[in-house]
Design a protein around this nucleic acid. Structure first.
Lengths: 182, 182
DNA sequence: GAAACTATACCGTCCAGACGGTACAGTTAT
DNA sequence: ATAACTGTACCGTCTGGACGGTATAGTTTC
C-alpha cells in the first residue's frame, strides 16, 4: 500500500482558511502551500492546477451540504428553525466551506455559482414543505442575510465578539419565524 | 476655461460595471481604462492609484446611501416595506455601487467593510423606529439576503429573467413584513 | 495658456504553472 | 532475505505573463 496523501486534505483546509480570512486575491498557490506546510511542487502534485483545487473544494461543499439537508429534514424543531440556527456562523465545516466558496462566487467563478444555486434550491424545497412556498422565501432570505454578514466580516477583527453579537440576532430571527409560521 | 473632466465619471462608471460583471480580479486598471474609453495615462491622471479610485467609489456609495435613507424615512408605505422593495436589484445607481463595493469587501478590503457596517447600522436604526429593534433585524436580514443573491448572480446570464424571478419574491417578503408588523 | 487628456515605453513585483529532482513504501525476482 | 525495481508523495527552482504604477512627450479643448 502506498503512503497516505495527508497533504491533500491539509492543502484543501489551508485553501479554505485563506479564502475566509484574506479573500480570494490573497489565496495564491504559494500562500496555500505555505499555510498547509507543503511545498508548492507538492501542492501541484495533488492538484494539477488551481481550478482542480477549486473543484475539490466544491465537491467538499456538496458533500457537506447534502448531509445538512438531511439533518434539516429530520430536525425535531422544524426545518425553518433549524435552518436559521445553522445559518449562523458557528465555524462548522459546512460554514467554512460555504463562506470560502462565496469568495469564489464573488470573483465571478461560474461553476461555483451554479453549485450555490443548486444547494439554495434544495433548502428552499425543504422549507416550503414546512411553511409553504411564500414564507419559505422569507426564511431563506433571512438565512442568506446571515451568511452575507458572516462573509462581510470574514476573518477580520475580533471573531468572538462578532459571533456573540450575531447569536443574539438569531433569537430575533427565530421569533420572526414563529410569527411567520403562526 | 479648462475642459470638464468628463472622463472621471466615465472611469468610475466603468470600474463599477467591471466589478459587478466580472469581479474584482478582472477589474484591472487596463480593463477599466479600456471600458471607459480612456487611456491608462488618462485614468491615472484623475486617480493617482487604484486605492484612490476605490475611495471615490466609496464616496459615491455614501452619498447615494444617505439619499436612500432620507427617502426611506419619508416613505409613505413605511420604512420596512420601502427597504424590502429597494433591496431588490433594480439596476439603480445605489444598487450598482452597492454590489460593486461588495466585491471589494469580499476581497477583504477593510475600509469598504467599515463603510458597509456604517450604512447597515443606519438602516437598522430607521427600521427599528417602525417595527421595533427585534423585528428590524429580521427585516434587515431579509434585505441583506436579497443583496446576497443579487451579488451571487452578478452580471452573468440572463439578467432580465433573474430580475423578474426575484421581483416575484418581493411579494412574498412584503407579505412576511406585514405579518411581522402586525 | 493651461487643464484635460492620448499614446507608449518601461520597471518591479507577483503569480500560475512547468520541470527536474529526491525520499521512501511496497513489490518482485532471486 | 535481500537486492533491484516501481510508483507515490513530495521538494526547490525557474519562466513567462500580467498587473500596478511611473515617466514623458505630444495633442485637443476651453
Amino acid at each position: 500500500m502506498p503512503r497516505k496523501p495527508i497533504a491533500r486534505d491539509a492543502v484543501l483546509d489551508a485553501f479554505e482558511a485563506l479564502l475566509i480570512e484574506v479573500g480570494e486575491r490573497a489565496a495564491t498557490l504559494d500562500a496555500v502551500a505555505k499555510r498547509a506546510g507543503v511545498s508548492k511542487g507538492g501542492l501541484l502534485y495533488h492538484f494539477p492546477n488551481k481550478e482542480a483545487m477549486i473543484g475539490s473544494l466544491l465537491e467538499r461543499m456538496d458533500r457537506l451540504a447534502a448531509l445538512d439537508i438531511e439533518a434539516m429534514k429530520a430536525a425535531p424543531e422544524g426545518s425553518a428553525a433549524f435552518f436559521i440556527k445553522s445559518s449562523l456562523w458557528a465555524d462548522t465545516p459546512l460554514d467554512r466551506v460555504f463562506v470560502a466558496a462565496t469568495r469564489l462566487a464573488e470573483v465571478a467563478h461560474e461553476e461555483t455559482r451554479r453549485r450555490f444555486a443548486g444547494i439554495q434550491q434544495q433548502w428552499l424545497d425543504v422549507l416550503a414543505e414546512e411553511v409553504g412556498p411564500e414564507m419559505a422565501k422569507a426564511v431563506r432570505y433571512m438565512g442568506d442575510g446571515l451568511y452575507f454578514n458572516a462573509m462581510l466580516e470574514g476573518g477580520a477583527g475580533d471573531t468572538e465578539v462578532k459571533a456573540s453579537a450575531r447569536s443574539a440576532d438569531v433569537g430575533a430571527l427565530l421569533a420572526a419565524v414563529e410569527r411567520l409560521r403562526g
